[in-house]
């Protein structure tokens, strides 16, 4: 094999950057499908049927207790086998990225449903009462009054979710996906591990600014919606409360969420 020189961090960054597009693809797709799935689960969690609530809750707990790389392997190795032997459909040609998207969509379903549920419950009950009392239909009240406020409460957790996904997504290289992480790993192999430091520092220098930009964007969003904040004290306490309660489980909370 040709011996490669990867000693320049700057060159490595240039080499890696194009592979970021694949990373963006699975992050966005996983967010999209995860969001839709989470919406379904959140509705189940808030509905009046005990069985549906229990199913959604059990699902969330299972996802919560599973390392994402395990789920990735299950999806990647089990699904094609299952499909071939039980459904008699050959899905071996399906691009690897779809397995990554599916894995993280399944994962985010549980994660985001919890974010949605807690955000919905953080909106005071009286907002719905007031909206109904002035003659809005329940649907109008939900869309115009409840949802914007719930969204505000969800922002810090959404920021966590996106950053979490960006980082966990790096595991996709384990099934051979050549995204930005996969490429870095490949480069390291191609150069017989002579330049791990310039290669992985370059990778870190790509991930860092990205995470910071995402974090800042959400902070700006939160500031724009600031009027919803109840009053400085109670809103802070409320958010702290539900963060501690519902978010302790998955991520080490990246710095800078709701509370200043």
């Amino acid at each position: 094999m040709q011996y490669k020189n990867y000693s320049s961090i700057l060159d490595n960054i240039k080499e890696l950057l194009p592979y970021l597009s694949l990373t963006f693809q699975y992050v966005l797709l996983a967010l999209l499908f995860g969001f839709i799935f989470a919406l379904l689960l959140a509705v189940m969690k808030l509905c009046k049927y005990k069985v549906l609530r229990a199913i959604a809750q059990i699902y969330t707990t299972i996802m919560r207790c599973l390392p994402s790389v395990v789920l990735l392997f299950v999806v990647y190795f089990f699904l094609p086998k299952f499909s071939r032997e039980v459904l008699l459909i050959d899905i071996d040609d399906v691009p690897k990225i779809l397995f990554v998207v599916l894995t993280f969509a399944l994962f985010l379903g549980g994660f985001l449903s919890e974010v949605m549920r807690s955000a919905y419950q953080a909106v005071s009950k009286d907002q719905m009462d007031a909206a109904l009392s002035i003659g809005l239909t329940p649907l109008q009240a939900f869309i115009r009054i409840i949802l914007p406020q719930a969204f505000y409460y969800a922002i810090p957790n959404l920021a966590n979710t996106v950053i979490y996904l960006l980082k966990e997504g790096a595991l996709a290289y384990t099934i051979g996906l050549i995204d930005v992480m996969g490429r870095a790993y490949q480069m390291n192999t191609l150069s017989y591990s002579v330049y791990p430091i310039p290669i992985f520092v370059a990778l870190a220098l790509i991930y860092w600014p990205l995470a910071i930009v995402i974090e800042q964007l959400f902070k700006i969003l939160e500031r724009l919606m600031n009027p919803i904040k109840e009053d400085k004290k109670t809103a802070g306490q409320k958010l702290k409360g539900f963060k501690a309660k519902y978010l302790g489980f998955l991520v080490q909370t990246p710095k800078g969420g709701a509370e200043k």
Partner: peptide, 9 residues
Amino acid sequence: FQNYSLFRN
């Protein structure tokens, strides 16, 4: 309402 219940958004 007793506690005003204005729309916060």
